[in-house]
Each structure stands twice: as structure tokens, then as C-alpha cells.
Design a protein around this nucleic acid. Structure first.
Lengths: 167, 167
DNA sequence: TTTAATTTTCAATATTTTTTGAAAGTTTAA
DNA sequence: TTAAACTTTCAAAAAATATTGAAAATTAAA
């Protein structure tokens, strides 16, 4: 496989995968492109490479910056803005874990807590609702604690966590 | 909050969350409904409760069965089919982890491996592509190993893993 | 200032995904 | 067998989501 094929394969795989964790194709592809680009890229560069419109590029770059995994950079003497991705994949994973906890897990935990706290009325359906949402709440809470623990760890946390798990 | 409000809140929250991990709203809602139902439900029951069509219900029930988290059940003397969800939330999490590894993580790992194995030609862009896809490959591989480890554990793995991580 | 370069916004459009519902298929009982 | 009960399939419609592109806004140099 040559460079261009490999690059395209990586970008489209990353794009397809993105939709599976809640970010859209263009956003994931822009991220993939920046991740493997040795130099910061301008909006024009990104539009050309991925064949997407200016508006699309602008909006998705903003979202990537909101996620904290893409940054603006300025080249001296140039007006144009350039963009780079977080290049350290472990830092990337930590940032994504952090954002997903904040955006999805924590709001869900809140709903589970509210729902599991309704009044017990003795009926089988109420019992079951309370029991199951309590169980989900406990699990989600444990997961969130684990994720936050992991976010605060040093860079080799994945490897270390693995070692602990399998020993 | 009364039972009906709590139930609806849970079902719609679960439905919204579903889209974030790659299953559609109806599928997630059917699952939520079955999870809190003390009795198995028929297709009619589900259609009525969620106000969705017969075709939709049929297709999504099939997918839930493919995921291994919903099962068909037969009541003696009745022709109609009834459905239940896996009720043990830890078993549910394990089943989902297993399927996600199989459907998403493993195919991605294969692509990353192929892409990171292209010939080094000395150029900066090729170097960067190889370096980054290798790093992603290593991380994805570690995650997959962790997930598979976890799948093979006993029912309290989440708690135990947490204890190990924070000690 | 004014102007030119660049980015952002957003209504309109295109695309993708989900849902419907009726016809076709299947299963079981009579 | 036939018929009734029930489920599945799938083309068409609806809904949701993503994308475009040009006008408006912003920025910085002249």
C-alpha cells in the first residue's frame, strides 16, 4: 500500500468510526487529517484535501476545538489561521474520556438517580423500575469514577491499568 | 415524580443515549422498556407502549436479539411471541462490550495495522502517518485486550477493577 | 479610516437514516 | 389440506442530520 492509499484508508476509517461515538463524518475526518499531518493546516488546505465546503470546515473545526483536541495556531507574518491536532494519543484518549463523561455519562447518571428515587408503591412494575435503574445508576457511577481516575493518571495509564487487571 | 413520568423519562433518556453508542432510538427504547418490565412483552404490547409500527418493532427486536441482549420467550398455550431483556446489568454491559469489540474495535485495529505497515520512504508525512497509526494501534489493541479480559471476569468485575485502579 | 483577507453564520438543499404499512411469508391448529 | 394468527420484508414516505455557499461579520494591514 502506498502513502496516498494508506492516508485515505486511515481518514475514511476514522470518519466511519466517528459516527459510532457520536461525532459526524466530516469532524472525524478533519481530525484524522490533522492527526497525521506533520505541519499545521489552514482551512483551505483542509477543504482541498477532504473536498468539503468552507462552512462545513469552519463549523467542524470549532467543534473539535470545543472538544479540546484541535488547536488554532498562527504563523508569524501570516493572517491566515492554522490548525493542529493533539498528537499524543494517550492525551487524546484522556480528553475524549473527559468530554464524554461530562456530556453523556453525568447527565445520564442524574436521570437514573431521579428515576430510581420515585416512591415505592408496592407494585411489581414500580419495584422493577426502581431495581433496574438503581443497578444502572450504580454501574454508571462506578464507570464515571473509573474514568475520572484514569483522566488524572499519568500518560501510561492504559498499560498500567492493563497490568493491574490481568495480574 | 410518579411511576409513569419516571418510566417515560427513563425510556427517553435511554433512547437518546442509544444514538450515542451506535444504536437507534427505537432500538434503545424497546430495550429500555423490556429492561424495566417485570413480565415479557408481546410485539403488540411494545407497539402500543412506544407508539411505533409493527415493522419497526420487528426489525429492532431482531437487532436486539443479534446483540444478544433480548430474548424470545413462549408462553404455554399461546402462539404469540414474547420478549424479555437480559436483566442483569453487569451481564448486559459484558455483552455490549463483547459486541462492540467484535463490530468496531477489531476491524479498526486491522486497518490501523495495515496502514501503519506501509513502506517507510523517509518523507516527513510518511513518518508521521506511520508513527500516529502505530500509536493508535497500540492503544486500540490494549483497550481490546482489557475489554476481553473484562468479558471473561465474574460478575463483580467493575467493582473489583475499580478497587485495583484506585488502590 | 478604507480595503482586502479571512472566518462565521445560517437558510436552503442534499443526503442519510428511520419509520411506516401493506403484501408476502410462516407457523400452528383444526 | 385450509384458514387464522402472527411475523417479516421492503419500497415508499417521513424525519433527522449534514452540507453548501453566499451574505454578514471580523480582523488586520495599508
Amino acid at each position: 500500500m502506498n502513502y496516498d492509499d494508506a492516508k485515505n484508508k486511515f481518514i475514511s476509517t476514522w470518519g466511519a468510526l466517528g459516527t459510532l461515538w457520536g461525532i459526524n463524518k466530516a469532524m472525524a475526518q478533519i481530525h484524522a487529517l490533522l492527526l497525521i499531518s506533520p505541519e499545521p493546516l489552514s482551512m483551505e488546505d483542509i477543504m482541498d484535501e477532504l473536498q468539503i465546503s468552507r462552512g462545513n470546515t469552519s463549523m467542524n473545526l470549532r467543534q473539535l476545538m470545543d472538544w479540546g483536541i484541535v488547536f488554532k495556531e498562527n504563523k508569524m507574518g501570516e493572517r491566515k489561521e492554522y490548525f493542529t491536532s493533539e498528537k499524543d494519543v494517550q492525551e487524546l484518549a484522556r480528553q475524549i474520556a473527559k468530554e464524554r463523561s461530562r456530556r453523556e455519562l453525568q447527565p445520564t447518571i442524574k436521570v437514573l438517580k431521579d428515576v430510581s428515587n420515585i416512591d415505592e408503591d408496592g407494585s411489581a412494575k414500580t419495584k422493577e423500575l426502581i431495581k433496574q435503574t438503581k443497578a444502572l445508576h450504580d454501574m454508571a457511577d462506578t464507570l464515571d469514577t473509573m474514568m475520572n481516575k484514569v483522566i488524572g493518571q499519568d500518560h501510561n495509564w492504559i498499560t498500567k491499568a492493563l497490568v493491574k487487571l490481568i495480574k
